[in-house]
Design a protein around this nucleic acid. Structure first.
Lengths: 339, 339
DNA sequence: TTCAGTGTATGAACCGTTTCATCGATGAGG
DNA sequence: CCTCATCGATGAAACGGTTCATACACTGAA
């Protein structure tokens, strides 16, 4: 084995020594090569190659202050909705030669806080976050410390933070209206905790739509809170729905992963969809239309959502902006039956 | 608007001044609180709160040298396979109180190189990467500079880098064998470029399985190279398969997203699955079993893959280790028809 | 010959921490 | 009363870059 692990990473002064110039000159070669004569530049570059020199980002950042990295915290990277958003962010950042550090909070405020702190300590330019709590004081504090913060997928309650969101009330409302139009009068809603704003908004949107259709939300809407917003959560939630007295005829799911779980449980229980139970998802992920029972779902402009968020983050001018996109109900067989 | 953006982030010396102690003491309060008397500690903490002080990670890292962050570069964060791997990594890192910076190379070597450099400059403890190229010299160079590097989802060609992988030859071989057993004698393989090792290995595995079943791989295997390893790529690839003279009777897909695209195209063309064309996927993602035609797929221990990779990265002892997991063929109706 | 101007290179200050040798005060033991 | 640990706090030296005022060497013009 001929690999030799170096005792220490080469520093700029090692390069300077080898090339027979000052550290300032090496720094200039790195950052403003035009201010250095071709001969010197070449000599320095040779030394850099020889020593396999990689500049220390911390040192650079410490002195220069700037960094071209942004952080994003989403609820769950394993959820296609969030990864699509992340791709949108990445694409916009790449255009500006910035890079993204991505992390998932798992809906746990402590985890979110930990990543927020990590990012802040490392001096990211800004943060995009899907808050795990309804309260965003801690984010406002970060903003007050001079970082740019953009709320993802939820409007800002106060007016100090910019946000990019989709109208969740409208999305859930459209879904509810659709179900009512099909004759459903009692609808279960597999939802996450209301501390997550999207969940609260969707519940409200449903209730409002039911009310304006002349139904009493108290009876027409049965909200079932699930612990995790994925397929497993959906399975467990649906089992509880099936046990309900005065069983609902439709189940609305807070996202498509949850709906996937619902479909699974219904199939296992031998209940036909939609005749025995209609199912609606949310997000319209790639595979929603390809399922055994193609899923009616609320489509959101995911990629664009991330893209605009990054856009806002990079925006020079510091005004607070709220962007709201409109969702679109995509109707498929999980509510209408074989077409 | 009462928000005041501070001129400058508070530093440790601001805290020291306000608390009437030295910077060394503040640092001690931060890192070894037990060495500071309760009274002083309290005073310092009050000052920290007052100034809303957040330590500067760059400075800390510059001086202390260490950092508890690892980087991972995968081909595409929007692919469930990679996000599951990422979750495995995150979970293991979290146990060790480390954090993850995640990025996707999009299968582009330049993008990969850019992120590698970024991570290295920022002094991550180690890197886990799914290489976008067959050549890993650049990764060995990083290793030689003292960082830990673990190859993800592919065995190391040389023996200088640790790796965690799934036996791709075996996985593809099992799928091919299964298809041959069903009577297929001409199989299309929607594959990515062979510069990606997994793709090359899977092609080899299929060819070997076909040969050992007594078929001539030259004729029995039609490899169709697709540009992007997702649903769109699968759709376009399948269109090309349908145009082939002597049309294959089965299509093997390099991953489930691709298979999703294949199913889509087949349905649009009115070709029944599997009677008109059998389809096999790879990865066995969450929704594989719930599709209109449940998908036969090769299951890989994704979460475990990431978990073990992070494990290796954190491992104190620096020996080179290769971990290989065995995949498992999950047979469903996309090859066997209605059960 | 002198001088202003230009293009390069220099070296020290600085960024915000950690670390460590040192120092003063305090209390115990002889 | 003196010594010696012990404890808490101090202050300055790193860490590895960037930046900027300054020096130096030429060139061409007056």
């Amino acid at each position: 084995m001929t690999t030799t692990v170096p005792r220490r990473r080469a520093s700029i002064s090692d390069v300077a020594r080898l090339a027979g110039v000052s550290v300032g000159t090496v720094s200039n070669v790195l950052n403003r090569p035009d201010r250095v004569s071709p001969t010197t530049r070449e000599r320095v570059q040779a030394a850099i190659g020889e020593l396999d020199f990689v500049p220390n980002g911390s040192a650079r950042q410490l002195r220069a202050g700037t960094i071209t990295t942004a952080g994003a915290i989403v609820l769950d990277v394993a959820n296609p909705f969030f990864t699509d958003v992340a791709r949108g962010i990445e694409d916009r950042l790449e255009e500006a030669d910035h890079t993204l550090m991505l992390a998932s909070s798992d809906e746990e405020p402590e985890r979110e806080a930990r990543y927020l702190r990590l990012f802040e300590e490392h001096g990211v330019q800004g943060l995009m976050v899907v808050p795990a709590t309804s309260d965003v004081e801690h984010l406002e504090a970060i903003r007050a410390r001079g970082l740019r913060v953009v709320l993802l997928d939820r409007p800002s309650p106060s007016d100090t933070l910019s946000s990019v969101a989709v109208d969740d009330r409208a999305g859930a409302g459209a879904a509810a209206q659709h179900l009512v139009g099909l004759g459903h009068e009692r609808i279960a809603f597999l939802n996450g905790p209301h501390t997550i704003r999207q969940c609260a908004d969707r519940a409200e949107g449903m209730a409002a739509a039911l009310a304006s259709a002349g139904l009493d939300p108290e009876h027409a809407l049965v909200e079932v809170t699930i612990d995790s917003l994925n397929a497993e959560g959906g399975q467990r939630g649906t089992e509880r729905v099936l046990d309900l007295a005065d069983r609902p005829t439709a189940v609305m799911c807070v996202n498509d992963l949850t709906a996937l779980g619902a479909l699974r449980t219904l199939r296992a229980a031998g209940i036909p969809v939609p005749s025995g139970m209609a199912v609606v998802g949310y997000d319209d992920v790639t595979f929603a239309g390809e399922l055994a029972t193609p899923l009616t779902s609320v489509r959101q402009p995911t990629h664009l959502l991330g893209y605009r968020a990054a856009d806002l983050l990079l925006d020079e001018d510091e005004t607070v902006v709220h962007v709201t996109f409109q969702p679109e109900l995509v109707v498929r067989e999980s509510t209408t039956g074989t077409s």
